[in-house]
Write a protein that binds this DNA or RNA. Structure first.
Lengths: 227, 227
DNA sequence: TCTATATTGATAGTAATACTATCTTTTATA
DNA sequence: TATAAAAGATAGTATTACTATCAATATAGA
């Protein structure tokens, strides 16, 4: 049995739905590869078109501009991650186990569960670490937010906040703690690889220290009595 | 008595030292104003030159490109902030008081202590919230890091980690906790203003909720027994 | 199967951006 | 007052970020 995951994306994220054509899928696939390779700043629709084997105009038919495309793939990532969280924590009743699973999913590179044909979830995870916050750190946040472009991110955050409250219903900052965990799952990994003196992690290659730090922090916060 | 604060900047941050000429100071001053107004993406040396009353070439004599300029003002900010921390926590022996002061300095808009002639610390603080992480979230991090461009940031982080250890010498992740506090002081404020559902803060205008959240988190982590 | 429609390809063009180069004038300084 | 350093003025280039147009092709419905 082969199951393919289809994520329904907000219409405002694109001009033409890239999931509904070969060209569209190639655009997404090569965007991820190119952004991963050269970074978002060096990424242009011209280079993308070359890789894909179409023209600049061809890409512009799908996405207004490269920032929108970045928001698209980020939204896809967050929706996909929330699905992973749902899937992996389904039938688990102990919120401790759930929260540990969530941290693991946030902070570690994925060992593919349900396959998605044209998106490389590992590359995407790496991209979101470096480029993810650029989606909203702009002068246009509020407009983009009104268009619900960040809904998948906010949904995931709300979901995690829920589990936090399940574990400790009296904790006063579940959403802020959730967004902290999400962001730090990325930032601490980035720091580990590129600015290690901002962390306490040696030069270990994997993300186990990041996971340990986040778990330690989360459960200290949730177990500790008010100060 | 008028004291002016001079921050000694790494030579690699600029081509010509902007602190040593009127034009240079104007470039910094108007950069801050323009980036604050339009955001870093829309900021160009041409527009800057117009504001300053010089030419594009004039600006290029001081800074290689706009990214370097951003790193410069960010470095200035972090150096300035570490000075503020030093100054405000001097002669305080209780690490609790010190840590609370640090959080306050990180998260709240400044009420000028020692004046700096041409840098508007309030605008700068706002800029760093939105644009600060863009200084290092690039493909060039490692090179820039080798050039010591992020030293002020790392120094501040190390300083805070020190105070954390003063309070709890057994805590295992002082640097990661410090960088978490620094980043979240900015992100939670940004979220509060632009993506409020990622926080637990109402629509209060000031930063008191952010401060409360960070203090609560920090001291729970440091007071709590190992899990 | 024919035909209307949507999609893609190919090409061209424009305004703005991110620079580099050069030459002249002004300013500081010894 | 001579000299060097800084700033001003101007020009030019390659790339980026688009928009527009028209022909070719695929597809889907009648």
């Amino acid at each position: 049995m082969e199951i393919e995951l289809q994520i329904k994306m907000n219409e405002k994220l694109f001009l033409r739905n890239p999931e509904q054509s070969e060209l569209g899928k190639k655009i997404i696939m090569h965007s991820i590869r190119l952004i991963h390779k050269n970074g978002f700043e060096a990424f242009t629709f011209k280079k993308l078109a070359e890789e894909v084997g179409t023209t600049e105009a061809g890409v512009y038919r799908y996405f207004e501009n490269k920032h929108r495309l970045l928001i698209y793939i980020a939204a896809w990532y967050w929706a996909w991650l929330e699905y992973q969280v749902m899937y992996q924590t389904n039938n688990i009743h102990d919120p401790v186990v759930k929260l540990k699973m969530i941290i693991k999913l946030l902070a570690t590179t994925v060992k593919e569960g349900v396959q998605t044909s044209y998106v490389d979830a590992n590359l995407l995870h790496q991209i979101i670490i470096t480029e993810g916050s650029k989606t909203y750190l702009t002068k246009r946040v509020s407009e983009d937010n009104n268009d619900k472009l960040f809904k998948p991110y906010k949904d995931l955050c709300a979901h995690i906040a829920q589990v936090i409250l399940e574990y400790n219903p009296n904790y006063r900052y579940p959403k802020s703690l959730a967004s902290t965990i999400i962001e730090m799952a990325h930032f601490q990994n980035f720091f580990k690889d590129h600015l290690p003196s901002l962390t306490d992690f040696g030069d270990k290659k994997d993300e186990s220290d990041t996971v340990a730090f986040l778990e330690d922090m989360l459960f200290r916060v949730l177990n500790c009595h008010e100060n």
